[in-house]
């Protein structure tokens, strides 16, 4: 029981970020900038939640900050058609440098924010919100016209354009939504799982979310299950530490801690089968 609660908690930031990544990638824009967007969101969330003592305002600020940085990303890769991998890497580096800089300006501390009292952080709201969003995203992509546009923007942008829908507009909005969700993912880290921002606190979770997305074949429900699997591996890993499996010596921590990643590789390689990306993923669209 305790493992399940732990799994759900740990999976929450991954869920938000993976959903964000999904919206952007289904529309045809690679988003390895998730990590950076999360980091900015984590900072904005913690900073505003501390200043206003309200986790909700913090979450709102994190969404705004995510949208803001996503707009910058969109400018580079949609408007200026830069390489999306390089653009995304640039955003990640920018976020890693910008957050300690801002914390120094606002709070005169290097790389973290003052810690939040219990009233100013979430107890379980983000966990519920994440699952509502998973169901929402599934319904949206499958049954609504705008969801269909997003899918076409990533699969056959030419067809969408000839149907009279502006592809780049769809991509723009998708990238902004992506930033908004990734920002929320960051906030769920800094004002739900932890109680302050600290430097590089995402610690690779943006990339874990990306892996979950690929593992989930760019579909909401399988992606969510992949996030849960990562969460479970992490929770199980905690419990396996120091357990004596054979002999007198416990299994080394180093070995236990590679288990989540080992599981990922095995699952990706063996059980999922071919994972097919949206056809026009990573290709900038230029009206012919």
């Amino acid at each position: 029981m305790e493992v399940i609660a732990s799994m759900l908690r740990v999976a929450t930031p991954l869920l938000f970020a993976a959903l964000g990544g999904m919206v952007s990638e289904r529309a045809g824009v690679v988003n390895i900038a998730l990590e950076g967007m999360m980091l900015i969101g984590a900072f904005a969330g913690a900073a505003v939640a501390y200043t206003t003592q309200s986790p909700w305002l913090g979450a709102g600020a994190a969404m705004l900050a995510g949208v803001f940085i996503a707009a910058f990303y969109g400018l580079i890769v949609i408007q200026l058609r830069a390489n999306q991998i390089i653009g995304g890497t640039a955003i990640n580096m920018l976020a890693a440098g910008l957050t300690p800089f801002l914390s120094k300006i606002f709070f005169d501390v290097t790389g973290n924010t003052p810690s939040l009292p219990m009233e100013a952080r979430f107890q379980y709201a983000p966990m519920i919100a994440a699952w509502v969003l998973v169901i929402g995203a599934w319904f949206w992509l499958k049954y609504t016209p705008s969801g269909t546009w997003v899918r076409f923007a990533g699969e056959k942008p030419e067809a969408l354009e000839s149907a009279g829908v502006r592809v780049n507009r769809v991509r723009w909005i998708s990238v902004l939504i992506s930033g908004c969700l990734a920002g929320l993912g960051g906030a769920s880290l800094s004002i739900f799982l932890a109680s302050s921002f600290s430097r590089n606190m995402t610690a690779g979770r943006g990339f874990m979310a990306l892996a979950a997305l690929i593992f989930g074949r760019w579909m909401p429900i399988p992606t969510a299950i992949a996030c849960l699997l990562f969460g479970f591996a992490d929770a199980a890993q905690i419990r396996l530490q120091g357990v004596v499996l054979w002999g007198a010596e416990p299994v080394p921590v180093q070995f236990i801690q590679i288990l989540p990643y080992l599981a990922t590789i095995l699952v990706l390689a063996g059980f999922v089968g071919q994972s097919r990306a949206p056809k026009s993923l990573g290709l900038p669209f230029k009206k012919g």
């Binding site: 305790e2 732990s6 908690r9 740990v10 880290l189 799982l193 932890a194 109680s195 302050s196 600290s198 430097r199 590089n200 606190m201 610690a203 992490d234 929770a235 905690i238 419990r239 530490q241 120091g242 921590v253 180093q254 801690q257």
Partner: peptide, 28 residues
Amino acid sequence: ISNFIGVTSDSWNNPAKAKELALTQFNG
């Protein structure tokens, strides 16, 4: 009961993981 956060220097800066470990120990 004893746990370690990780095996890289990121471990000094991962309060979310530390909290998860602590909750596990307290609940245990």
